[in-house]
């Protein structure tokens, strides 16, 4: 069977798999962007309790494996009376895991805004909240965008693990096709290429465009 015949016969399975991967990636990204904003700010809070809670979350999710977290959420959480359907368990695990890494990116970006900016804002008598919202965060946003591009690619790659709890994503499709055809190079190779295309031709250009828009809005270009 030529590769083109292979694609003709099984291509549709990869397409529907890729759609599920995208459906996992979008809500996981929303989580992975929302969590860091909250926890990144909590991490910089002056209250010891708030700061500790944020540190505990971040260290726990960064200190263990995504796969362990996924299994724990899917197999152990039901024992606490919280049963998640596999699709939801998948993107929640991926989103919470990457969110912990994102929180560190947010914190680092906020801290790398020059201290003179804070001092100037104080000199203008802006309130702490206004300082953060109007002066520090917009500048931090520009600094954190490039690392976010890398994190979103990590997230996309991370969604491949949801196939291990039987979510029918791209990875799952590749394993199924491999199982029924034994054409491993074609099956896994095709999936590799589709992931690569999604990462380099969708995620990366989207992030670059966002960086450009933000930079011109903030008058940096």
């Amino acid at each position: 069977m030529s590769y083109w015949e292979f694609l003709g016969e099984y291509g549709i399975r990869f397409v529907s798999g890729a759609i599920v991967t995208a459906e996992q990636t979008v809500p996981a990204s929303a989580l992975a962007i929302g969590i860091p904003v909250v926890f990144g700010l909590m991490r910089l809070s002056r209250s010891f309790v708030i700061r500790s809670a944020a540190i505990a979350y971040i260290e726990f999710f960064r200190g263990t494996s995504l796969l362990v977290q996924l299994y724990w959420i899917f197999f152990v959480l039901p024992l606490f009376g919280l049963t998640l359907e596999k699709f939801a368990a998948g993107f929640i695990a991926v989103g919470m895991n990457l969110g912990a890494y994102g929180a560190e990116v947010v914190r680092g970006a906020i801290r790398s805004v020059p201290h003179g900016q804070t001092e100037a804002a104080i000199a203008l008598n802006l309130s702490p909240a206004t300082r953060m919202r109007r002066i520090i965060l917009p500048q931090a946003l520009l600094i954190m965008l490039p690392p976010w591009g890398n994190l979103l690619i990590e997230l996309l790659k991370g969604t491949a693990l949801v196939s291990l709890i039987s979510v029918a994503d791209l990875m799952f499709a590749a394993r199924q096709v491999n199982g029924s055809t034994f054409l491993s190079a074609q099956a896994f190779g095709t999936a590799l290429i589709v992931y690569y295309v999604m990462a380099r031709l969708v995620v990366t250009p989207a992030m670059r465009a966002t960086e450009r828009v933000m930079a011109s809005r903030l008058g940096r270009t």
């Binding site: 969604t159 491949a160 291990l164 491993s184 590799l192 992931y195 690569y196």
Partner: peptide, 19 residues
């Protein structure tokens, strides 16, 4: 290599070489 999932690469190496 950086842009594609490790778990898929593990399958790829494990199954493709025997082919």
């Amino acid at each position: 290599i950086r842009s594609t999932p490790l778990v898929l690469q593990i399958f790829f190496v494990f199954y493709v070489f025997p082919q």
